[in-house]
Amino acid sequence: MKTNPDTLPRYTAAERVNHWLVAFTFFLMTLSGLVFFQPLYVPLNQLFGGGVWARILHPFFGVAMIVFFGGMYVRFRQLCAMTLTDREWLTHVRDMVNGDDRNMPESGKLNGGQKLLFWLLVACMVLLVLSGIVIWRAYFSFLFPVGLVRFAAVVHAAAGAVMMALIIGHIYLAIWTRESMGAMLYGRVRKAWAKQHHPAWFREMTGGSK
């Protein structure tokens, strides 16, 4: 495939595959986890072959998630280190939401919001894994006192809900910011897109012009 000279490479194939593996696993986890969340979502168990299957599968999806998300963490943790500009960016986030990005500090390959999302997801994931193990009745719960299991159940449900909210936001922002989906699908973005949304990165990639 010939690459268009008007575009810049943004994510490698490995990064993209990893991202989508996490995304698919996340959907499996969410859909199967919601089955236990509230009666409203019980019908979702049909996607997995019934409630018993949802109960069996959900924690094993979790094991896959640990591997995939772990990979994502290793790949992106440096890129997501917060800089002063990122913090500055976050203080102006209101303007951004209002669709006015003229006064936004110049963001690098990822902006402050994206980095914050990354760290919030990491925090949720850590909580979900730890609490998930404690409430995994078939293999682990008997190792823990019941008070801890109760606490872990609350933590797991809360962290799950927060993570779902974060991901809804993440998906929306990917739709809202036109063409950004392409970055994660094909790996490349138009130069103009890069200059618009990630000016510091654009300069870095194009050799400092302007």
Binding site: G99, T177, R178, E179, A192, W193, K195
Partner: peptide, 12 residues
Amino acid sequence: PNEVSEEIEKEV
């Protein structure tokens, strides 16, 4: 939507 502005399209 949050699109690339005309201005930047032109600059690039």
